[in-house]
Design a protein around this nucleic acid. Structure first.
Lengths: 153, 153
DNA sequence: TAAAGTCGTCAACGTGGTTGTCGAATTCCA
DNA sequence: TGGAATTCGACAACCACGTTGACGACTTTA
């Protein structure tokens, strides 16, 4: 049994990622969030429960503050985030998640648990743990949210 | 030892993918192909050694023929592909990889072997094989090249 | 041979990234 | 304390990459 060619490894990793994200958004759509795009999930995660300014958001997502501002525009337009003046600093505008935004994040977390449970059912708990551990070893473990423009560059 | 939260699984898979692709392009740049973007690799893979028309390319990449045509424009402009009239059908224009394009694909394949070998060195051959097998199980195994616009949609 | 389908291209547009610039507000420091 | 430097959000112009719709040229089909 020969080893798989090297180019399969990235394709398999991407397929796994893509499958999970697709499944997430299918289920999210069924639960009342049909217009959340993968990008929005990352952005809302970066905003977090305490809110953030556009500049902070840009740093967390690895994009310019202008690009972050546009993302907030889109999120605001869909009702997932809102801007409020910062009482302590008139330059800043704090971006906060709306209840709808928080709901979508909570549901996403729950759905991801279910999806992981499916992997455990199919592969066994030890194999999934090993897979996670191995990936953590090879990637250094730090999660990066600056995903959006990375691929097309 | 509690299990990892479900949301880590997709992030780990993506991190692995991203690490491999970043390493590939770093090395590719050092070997004389600094302006190959990840997207171009997928497109050239889809063109293949026998060439393809823009329409076929679009089908393989899961995008419109117009989008495929634009990709070919960029590939052509960078010297990785060229268009030739089809002698048998004056409507068609066959897109073929140039020697430079073929060279970049060959180098990519070699670099991917090296990168996989690094994983084997770090994790052991059996763990890498298990990882690949598990991912194949969970994703159905068919590789999809239609990656470009999927994320931002 | 007329009708129907396919191929490539052009045009207009949407999204999401970039840099440069700017006024307003805040912070720093001599 | 007051001027200089910095930071914030916004605007504009531009690029990358996708989408539809339309169209002329060419083949295939009935």
């Amino acid at each position: 049994m020969a080893d798989a060619p090297g180019f399969e490894l990235p394709l398999l990793l991407f397929s796994g990622f893509r499958t999970l994200i697709d499944d997430l958004h299918t289920e999210l759509a069924r639960q009342g969030h049909p217009d959340v795009r993968p990008t929005f999930g990352f952005a809302m995660q970066a905003i977090g429960p305490r809110g953030a300014t556009a500049s902070e958001l840009g740093k967390r997502l690895g994009v310019s503050k202008q690009a972050a501002g546009k993302t907030v525009d889109r999120l605001e337009q869909l009702g997932y985030a809102e801007r409020a003046d910062d009482p302590g600093d008139a330059r800043r505008k704090l971006v906060r998640l709306t209840p709808r935004g928080i709901d979508s994040l909570a549901r996403s977390a729950a759905i991801f648990e279910t999806l992981r449970a499916n992997w455990v059912k199919e592969l066994g708990a030890d194999r999934v743990r090993a897979l996670e551990a191995d990936l953590r070893t090879m990637t250094g473990g730090g999660f990066r949210l600056d995903v959006a423009g990375w691929f097309a560059g």
